[in-house]
């Protein structure tokens, strides 16, 4: 029980509950089944990216290119399908998008390890590079209507809830987020690869000295983030039933915020899937439900920013306090008493 109150997850969970209660009390619509189902639906794409990105932050790096990777993957895939009038099974385009993402992520990973450059700089560069190349070579005309297999998949529902006023459905695409969370959890906690990621994030030099395959693991991590980016891209297109090649661009800060809010230390070495789930919940609720309490779109950015700053500051402050804790030299008794030296 004591341990429960020490973990960061507990505090984020309390934040989620508080946020829900405040919004729900002001506007009970928040607790209606369709609203909750919609929140899960809206978390899908961000979630896929957040879980993968968490691995990049744990290893002591960062990736800001995954939105560009997502856009490239979804646009190239949907554009190709459109031009060939695709009518095959749906898993092939999803696989294709994931493969494009994998390739772009691999390029990131290779540049980072080959030249030993900071991941932030590399991915900032490739983000611009990938997106620029896409717009230059393929153009930026939206795909207004997806090919039938994708369109049909987007309309497949796991279940639907209806009340007096509205109705909402959880689409099958949601399964991809759950799968991503499970895969990341499995890698981080059950494989040597995952423990190597933690080790590198804890102390890279130590990992090298202990003979861990540091570079290979870093390349894997960025490749994996690229794969998740590609997947998130195509899922986004499927969910919105169209493909606009400027969508998602700029979402990286929100995703990073979700991961960091969830207790992943930005300097690496620490992070949990559960924490990221909770961080994602905070961001999703703030982004989608502030409108329910009368905070208009203009103020929404402000409040969202406030939540991120306060949320991350609290966790940073806790870490600071822990590191600055000076062990007392004297007990109360010794302080009051007479010394017998």
């Amino acid at each position: 029980m004591k341990k429960l109150f020490k973990t960061h997850e507990t505090y984020v969970a309390l934040t989620v509950i508080a946020l829900c209660l405040v919004i729900g009390i002001i506007n009970p619509v928040f607790f209606s089944a369709p609203n909750i189902v919609n929140l899960f639906r809206n978390a899908t794409v961000n979630g896929i990216m957040a879980f993968a990105l968490m691995m990049g932050i744990i290893i002591g790096g960062i990736d800001v290119a995954f939105p560009a990777v997502a856009v490239c993957s979804m646009y190239l895939t949907t554009k190709t399908l459109e031009s060939m009038g695709y009518d095959g099974p749906v898993f092939i385009p999803i696989l294709a998008a994931a493969l494009i993402g994998t390739l772009l992520g691999l390029i990131n990973g290779l540049i980072i390890t080959k030249f030993d450059l900071p991941a932030f700089i590399v991915t900032l560069g490739t983000s611009s590079l990938y997106h620029g190349l896409l717009v230059w070579l393929v153009g930026s005309k939206p795909v207004n209507r997806l090919e039938p297999p994708l369109e049909a998949f987007g309309k497949m529902e796991i279940f639907r809830v209806t009340n007096d006023t509205t109705s909402a459905a959880l689409p099958w695409t949601f399964v991809f987020m759950v799968a991503m969370a499970l895969v990341v959890w499995f890698i981080l906690n059950k494989t040597m690869l995952g423990r190597t990621i933690f080790a590198i994030g804890g102390d890279r030099t130590s990992a090298e000295r202990a003979g861990y395959p540091v570079k290979r693991t870093i390349v894997f991590t960025y490749t994996f983030i690229g794969m998740a980016g590609g997947l998130a891209g195509i899922i986004h297109a499927i969910q919105s039933q169209m493909c606009i090649p400027t969508d998602l661009m700029g979402c990286e800060m929100m995703i990073i915020a979700a991961v960091v809010l969830g207790g992943t230390t930005i300097s690496g070495g620490r992070g949990t899937v559960l924490g990221t789930c909770l961080g994602l919940a905070v961001i999703t609720i703030a982004k989608n439900s502030l409108i329910l309490v009368g905070i208009t779109a203009t103020w929404q950015r402000f409040v969202l920013g406030l939540i991120i700053v306060i949320g991350t500051a609290v966790s940073a402050y806790q870490a600071l306090r822990a590191s600055r804790k000076i062990a007392p030299v004297m007990t109360e008794e010794e302080e009051g008493g007479v010394v017998n030296g």
């Binding site: 040597m192 423990r195 933690f198 080790a199 994030g201 804890g202 102390d203 030099t205 130590s206 990992a207 000295r209 202990a210 003979g211 861990y212 070495g269 620490r270």
Partner: peptide, 22 residues
């Protein structure tokens, strides 16, 4: 090593045994 080259973010058990498991 002088700085021990350990992993501060991991547990005692993992620090000691993981390289051997690898």
């Amino acid at each position: 090593y002088q700085d021990f080259s350990i992993f501060p973010n991991l547990t005692v058990a993992e620090n000691i045994a993981m390289p051997s498991e690898r």
